[in-house]
C-alpha cells in the first residue's frame, strides 16, 4: 500500500488502519454480519446476525447479496432477505449509505477485509437514524432533497434554447466548485450532525436545520457567475430559522464526508455572507 498524501489527516489515518487490516485478512474466512432490522414504519426493530463467507474484495454489498440468496440467520432461523438501498456500487451515487460499526458511510466502498479481518469478526449494519426507516437499512431521504429546493440549488438559466456558451472560469475557481459539486446527497454529514435530527413532520422541515450539504450547495451556486443571481434568495433562507445560524459548530460533518468536501469552510463562507447580506438589507431598507 502506497501512502496517500492527497488525503487529510483523519482520512489518511482511516486508510492506514484499513490497509493494516487488509494485509492480515485471510480469504475464505467466516465472519458475522449483524443487522438492525425493521419490517416497516411503526413496526418493532430487532437484531439479526448472519454468518457469511468472505472472499478477496468482498464488500458489504456482496455480503448482503449472499444473505439475500440464502436468508438464514447464524443460529439457523429462516428469515427474509435484508432490504437496503444501493445503486452504482462505486461510491458515486450515494444510495447505499448506512451506519457501519457506528459510523455513516457508503456500504459499497466498505471492504470486509478492512472492518472484519479475522475469522469470527462481526460487522454491524444499521440504518441512518436521521431519516425515517422504510424497511431494514433503507431510509427515506426526501428531506435532504427538499432542502436543496429551499436554497434554490440551481443556475437560473433562460431555458434550453441555444444561447451561446456560459461564462469563462479560472481553473482555480473550477477546481473549488468541482469539489463542492461532487456532493452526492448521501446524508453522512446529516447523520453526524448534532443539530440535524429526525423530523417526521414534513411541515416542520422548512424551519428545521437545513444541513451542511445544502449550505455547501448554496455556496456552490452563489459562486457561479449566473447562479449568484439567486444569492439574495438563498441568503434570506439561510438567515431564517433552520438556516446557517443553527449550526452548532460541532464540525462532525467535514470528518465524515466521503468526498472530502470542505463543508465547514462552506458554512463559514455562508455565515459571513448572511451577516453581510443582513447589514446591506438593513442599510438599504430592503
Amino acid at each position: 500500500m502506497t501512502t496517500a498524501p492527497h488525503l487529510p489527516p483523519h482520512a489518511a489515518e482511516a486508510a492506514r488502519i484499513a490497509a493494516a487490516n487488509r494485509a492480515r485478512a485471510v480469504p475464505g474466512r467466516k465472519v458475522y454480519v449483524k443487522v438492525f432490522r425493521c419490517d416497516g414504519p411503526g413496526k418493532p426493530s430487532r437484531w439479526e446476525t448472519f454468518q457469511v463467507t468472505v472472499e478477496r474484495g468482498s464488500n458489504v454489498i456482496s455480503m448482503l447479496q449472499q444473505i439475500a440468496a440464502n436468508p438464514v440467520t447464524a443460529d439457523g432461523k429462516k428469515t427474509t432477505p435484508v432490504v437496503w438501498d444501493s445503486g452504482c456500487l462505486e461510491e458515486v451515487c450515494g444510495a447505499c449509505t448506512m451506519v457501519i460499526n457506528g459510523k455513516a458511510r457508503q456500504s459499497c466502498s466498505c471492504l470486509i477485509d478492512d472492518y472484519a479481518p479475522a475469522e469470527g469478526d462481526t460487522i454491524t449494519l444499521e440504518p441512518m437514524s436521521k431519516f425515517p426507516v422504510v424497511r431494514d437499512l433503507w431510509v427515506d431521504r426526501s428531506r435532504l432533497f427538499h432542502n436543496l429546493k429551499r436554497v434554490k440549488a440551481w443556475v437560473p438559466i433562460d431555458g434550453t434554447y441555444s444561447l451561446g456558451s456560459g461564462p469563462t472560469e479560472s481553473p482555480e475557481s473550477q477546481e473549488q466548485r468541482y469539489v463542492m459539486s461532487t456532493c452526492m446527497s448521501c446524508g453522512c454529514c446529516l447523520e453526524a450532525c448534532p443539530q440535524f435530527n429526525l423530523e417526521p413532520d414534513e411541515s416542520a422541515w422548512d424551519t428545521s436545520f437545513i444541513g451542511a450539504h445544502a449550505i455547501n450547495q448554496a455556496r456552490l451556486f452563489n459562486e457561479h457567475e449566473t447562479g449568484k443571481r439567486l444569492k439574495a434568495d438563498r441568503l434570506d433562507t439561510l438567515a431564517a430559522a433552520g438556516g446557517v445560524n443553527d449550526c452548532g459548530n460541532a464540525q462532525n460533518c467535514v470528518k465524515v464526508c466521503p468526498k472530502l468536501i470542505p463543508l465547514t469552510e462552506s458554512i463559514a463562507v455562508i455565515g459571513r455572507a448572511v451577516t453581510i447580506h443582513a447589514f446591506s438589507k438593513w442599510f438599504s431598507g430592503r
Binding site: W154, V155, I157, T160, S162, L163, G164, S165, G166, T168, E169, S170, P171, S173, Q174, R177, Y178, S181, F221, H224, T226, G227
Partner: peptide, 18 residues
Amino acid sequence: IDLLDRMGVPFNRTAEGM
C-alpha cells in the same frame, strides 16, 4: 456543451478559462 456550461457544469478549464 454550451447549454451544460450555462447550467453551471464545472468543466475543467484551461489557464485562460476556456
